[in-house]
Amino acid sequence: MFIEANGIQMHYELDGNPNRPWLTMVTGITNDTTMWVDQVAALKDDFHILRYDLRGQGKSSATPAPYSIELLSADLIALWDALGIQQSHLTGLGLGASIALAMGVHHSERLLSLLPCCCRAKMVPEFAAMWHQLMATVKQGGIEAIVENTAQRWFSESFKQAYPEKLEAVRQMIRGTSTEGYLGVVSAFVGLDVEDQLGQIKVPTMLMGGAEDKVGGPEPIMREIAQKIPNAYYTPVPGAAHIANLQNPAGFNEIMKSFLLKVSQG
């Protein structure tokens, strides 16, 4: 489904139980709504689920770079307003989780709980250098030039060897990203800086991350983020690297569902 929000055509999907609380799932860089399929299956009986593609990702329309975390947050607020969603549980992965953190800082009144996965709260020079190089590569060679690098970075070696078909599906998802949209969302990610404001988050919060994630959201960084949010905590997902919900969906779903049901039941 498509709807106009904040000046763009946004692609979104609704699943689950309309009589239950909203749960919004935010994708990351070169992701689309298909990344959450296993989570929807696990949570559809207990939540009314909204998935959407970020500006310039998947089937949502792109605008010229640069984007900002504030712009991507405004897109989500506009989507909620267009769909009549007053409050929602909010989860995201990678850039999607960084957007979720920013939403927690600036829009806690719209959230029921916060569940950021495999993320960061502030860009640092050594991590930014990788992203600047990736943007330069895409400017020169298009999205195809970073497909393999990205797919390889997301998963552990054992997973890549055991599930070549899943790796190929991920390659196809990455290829669905427009060059303009890639440069836009990466520019937003490079400007990420909400770490010093995390104490303003006012909703129940659990952070999750792949126990084997060494780059995108390493455990020490995730634990540090959790310590800066009132009453938040971190739970590692065993047997998973950066895209933890795809590498260990059963373990990821168990942790996520337990937290969300506990929060929903008060």
Results as ranks from 00 to 15, higher is better:
residue 7 G to A: 08
residue 10 M to C: 06
residue 10 M to Q: 07
residue 15 D to A: 13
residue 27 T to H: 08
residue 29 I to A: 03
residue 35 M to V: 15
residue 35 M to L: 15
residue 39 Q to F: 11
residue 41 A to F: 02
residue 42 A to H: 01
residue 44 K to Y: 09
residue 44 K to Q: 14
residue 45 D to K: 05
residue 49 I to K: 04
residue 52 Y to P: 02
residue 57 Q to G: 04
residue 57 Q to T: 05
residue 60 S to R: 01
residue 62 A to G: 11
residue 65 A to F: 04
residue 68 S to P: 10
residue 69 I to L: 11
residue 72 L to Q: 13
residue 77 I to H: 02
residue 77 I to C: 08
residue 79 L to K: 03
residue 79 L to E: 14
residue 85 I to P: 06
residue 87 Q to N: 15
residue 88 S to C: 13
residue 88 S to T: 15
residue 90 L to Y: 11
residue 91 T to G: 11
residue 92 G to R: 01
residue 93 L to C: 10
residue 93 L to G: 04
residue 95 L to T: 05
residue 98 S to T: 13
residue 98 S to L: 10
residue 99 I to D: 05
residue 101 L to F: 13
residue 103 M to R: 00
residue 104 G to I: 02
residue 105 V to R: 00
residue 112 L to I: 11
residue 113 S to L: 07
residue 114 L to E: 04
residue 116 P to V: 12
residue 116 P to Y: 06
residue 121 A to R: 00
residue 121 A to V: 12
residue 125 P to H: 09
residue 131 W to S: 08
residue 132 H to C: 13
residue 132 H to G: 10
residue 133 Q to F: 09
residue 141 G to V: 12
residue 144 E to Y: 05
residue 148 E to Y: 01
residue 148 E to S: 05
residue 149 N to M: 14
residue 150 T to E: 00
residue 150 T to L: 01
residue 154 W to D: 06
residue 156 S to G: 15
residue 157 E to W: 06
residue 158 S to Y: 06
residue 158 S to V: 14
residue 169 A to L: 10
residue 170 V to T: 09
residue 173 M to Q: 03
residue 174 I to Q: 00
residue 175 R to T: 11
residue 175 R to F: 04
residue 177 T to H: 01
residue 177 T to M: 01
residue 178 S to K: 04
residue 178 S to G: 11
residue 181 G to H: 01
residue 183 L to K: 03
residue 191 G to S: 05
residue 196 D to Q: 13
residue 196 D to S: 15
residue 196 D to C: 07
residue 200 Q to F: 03
residue 200 Q to T: 09
residue 201 I to H: 01
residue 201 I to P: 01
residue 208 M to Y: 08
residue 208 M to D: 09
residue 209 G to N: 11
residue 210 G to Q: 06
residue 210 G to H: 05
residue 213 D to C: 10
residue 214 K to N: 12
residue 215 V to E: 05
residue 218 P to G: 09
residue 222 M to Y: 07
residue 228 K to E: 14
residue 230 P to M: 03
residue 232 A to S: 13
residue 234 Y to V: 11
residue 236 P to N: 03
residue 236 P to R: 03
residue 238 P to T: 10
residue 238 P to R: 00
residue 242 H to T: 10
residue 245 N to Q: 14
residue 246 L to C: 15
residue 246 L to H: 02
residue 249 P to G: 15
residue 249 P to S: 12
residue 250 A to I: 15
residue 253 N to W: 14
residue 253 N to F: 14
residue 254 E to P: 04
residue 255 I to C: 08
residue 255 I to R: 00
residue 255 I to M: 02
residue 258 S to R: 11
residue 258 S to Q: 14
residue 260 L to T: 05
residue 263 V to P: 07
residue 264 S to V: 05
residue 265 Q to M: 11
residue 265 Q to Y: 04
residue 265 Q to A: 12
residue 266 G to K: 08
